[in-house]
Amino acid sequence: MTKRAYVVNLSGEEQKKLQKICSTGKTAARSIRRAQILLWADENRNEGKLKDTEIAERLHIHTNTVHLVRKVFAEQGLQAALERKKRLTPPNPPKVTGELEAKIIALSCSEPPTGKSRWTLRLLADKAVELQYIDSLSYDTVDRILKKGELKPHLRKCWCIPPQQNAAFVAAMEDVLEVYHEPYDVNCPVICMDEKPFQLLNEVRQPIPMKPAKPLREDSEYERNGTCSIFIFTEPLVGWRHVEVRNQRTRMEWAEQVRALLDVHYPQAPKIKLVMDNLNTHSVASLYHAFDPETALRLAKRLEIHYTPKHGSWLNIAEIELSVMTRQCLGRRIPSITELSDELSAWEQSRNQIQKGVDWQFTTKDARIKLKRLYPQFKD
């Protein structure tokens, strides 16, 4: 019988320490496994020592691992057998440093090369190598860097960007915000107005209905039937809105919509505060262009117009209603003005029944804090 090269003889204190490591489970799994190897390999074990092959079979490990633990225990002691071997040489420095990440981020925020509409992961990786930031770089690494910085160079978002320190913008913004902050007055309601162009499209081929595991399928070809304009009026505090479809968006259409608002929908209101964008057709002059002077003056006297600032259409609550209407009703092909009017009428009736209003929270005080950069620098 061959004699073992490395014998494990545990003292009573060492046995208790190893048993505690195995029973508590608060130590690293690697140390627990090595403690089990030493306990089963102990020559002083009451139940009898186990062969290396038996220990390896019980722990589902290789016999070489059992042999290695025996060797470390015999040569360096119990603590060395339980702990991971310390690295004698310093680890290799990371390839992706903070400096490289900063350069990649700066590169992604710069203009893309000529002939490219945007930066891609592969384009950024190749450019970093070309600029000698690093010898080689994968696009997966670039992806991790951009995600870490929450950067998305593949996305573009349309946004109203006002000029810096613009007194005209601030004056119109605070005027609209003060109107929104006023309490409800039945004799002078606040009405927001906006309009939206819409393209009429007809199906060339009948869509295939939805089936289990298959969505509705429509042909990419369609027939253009012209365009029209959608006018919307809304009273946010009441939860009322009215939608009208017209062939065009001219002074005549706007004037007719305003007369219907005053004479049909709010005939008893002495005055209406009308909030809208500052377009060329949105003026009292359009009333005189469309009607006789007496009618135009009568309508103008009942209007108190408040314009949203240029590049500040987000201040118009009617845009919120337009966004909801687009998502809920217009996400499809509609071939004619008649059908569009019917669909919008049904949407308007349904939304008015639930009296869904808009709870506007942004105030003048908030604007002076969050949009401070837009205010001109005041000097005493």
Results as ranks from 00 to 15, higher is better:
residue 2 T to I: 08
residue 304 E to Q: 15
residue 233 F to S: 00
residue 238 V to P: 05
residue 335 P to H: 10
residue 126 D to K: 14
residue 264 V to T: 09
residue 217 R to S: 13
residue 126 D to A: 11
residue 14 E to Q: 13
residue 214 K to R: 15
residue 157 K to Y: 12
residue 132 Q to Y: 09
residue 353 Q to Y: 14
residue 339 E to R: 15
residue 112 P to H: 07
residue 58 R to F: 12
residue 282 H to A: 03
residue 360 W to R: 06
residue 341 S to N: 04
residue 143 D to C: 12
residue 299 L to D: 01
residue 152 K to Q: 08
residue 310 K to E: 06
residue 22 C to A: 09
residue 7 V to P: 02
residue 211 K to I: 04
residue 34 R to M: 08
residue 16 K to M: 13
residue 377 Q to H: 14
residue 277 D to S: 09
residue 29 A to Y: 09
residue 119 W to A: 08
residue 178 E to D: 10
residue 67 H to G: 06
residue 112 P to G: 13
residue 296 A to K: 00
residue 123 L to D: 12
residue 206 Q to T: 14
residue 367 A to I: 07
residue 81 A to G: 07
residue 150 E to G: 11
residue 250 T to K: 10
residue 269 A to S: 09
residue 69 V to E: 02
residue 319 E to D: 03
residue 276 M to L: 15
residue 87 R to K: 15
residue 283 S to K: 12
residue 228 C to H: 01
residue 146 L to E: 00
residue 207 P to Y: 06
residue 131 L to C: 09
residue 252 M to L: 12
residue 323 S to V: 06
residue 235 E to I: 02
residue 93 P to A: 09
residue 316 N to D: 03
residue 106 A to V: 08
residue 77 G to I: 04
residue 72 V to E: 08
residue 223 E to P: 04
residue 160 C to I: 07
residue 13 E to M: 06
residue 95 K to I: 02
residue 32 I to C: 00
residue 54 E to Q: 15
residue 346 A to M: 06
residue 125 A to G: 04
residue 103 K to Y: 11
residue 249 R to A: 03
residue 277 D to I: 07
residue 196 K to V: 01
residue 38 L to P: 01
residue 28 A to E: 09
residue 280 N to S: 14
residue 364 T to R: 14
residue 82 L to T: 01
residue 354 I to A: 11
residue 321 E to C: 14
residue 321 E to Y: 11
residue 295 T to N: 03
residue 210 M to Y: 14
residue 350 S to R: 13
residue 184 Y to T: 13
residue 101 E to R: 09
residue 20 K to N: 13
residue 371 L to P: 00
residue 250 T to Q: 06
residue 319 E to G: 00
residue 159 W to R: 14
residue 267 P to S: 01
residue 248 Q to R: 15
residue 226 G to R: 08
residue 208 I to E: 14
residue 192 C to M: 11
residue 124 L to M: 05
residue 199 Q to K: 14
residue 338 T to I: 13
residue 5 A to M: 12
residue 50 L to Y: 05
residue 365 K to Y: 07
residue 203 E to F: 15
residue 343 E to M: 09
residue 275 V to H: 03
residue 31 S to F: 01
residue 289 H to V: 02
residue 260 A to P: 00
residue 76 Q to G: 02
residue 44 N to W: 05
residue 8 V to F: 00
residue 76 Q to A: 10
residue 306 H to Q: 04
residue 332 R to K: 15
residue 50 L to V: 07
residue 182 E to R: 12
residue 94 P to Q: 09
residue 229 S to G: 05
residue 322 L to H: 11
residue 230 I to G: 00
residue 317 I to K: 05
residue 273 K to F: 10
residue 9 N to G: 10
residue 147 K to W: 07
residue 117 S to F: 14
residue 117 S to I: 11
residue 380 D to R: 14
residue 102 A to T: 08
residue 100 L to K: 03
residue 306 H to D: 01
residue 208 I to S: 11
residue 334 I to H: 08
residue 5 A to C: 07
residue 57 E to N: 13
residue 313 S to H: 05
residue 295 T to G: 00
residue 186 V to Q: 15
residue 1 M to Q: 04
residue 23 S to K: 12
residue 32 I to L: 01
residue 108 S to R: 06
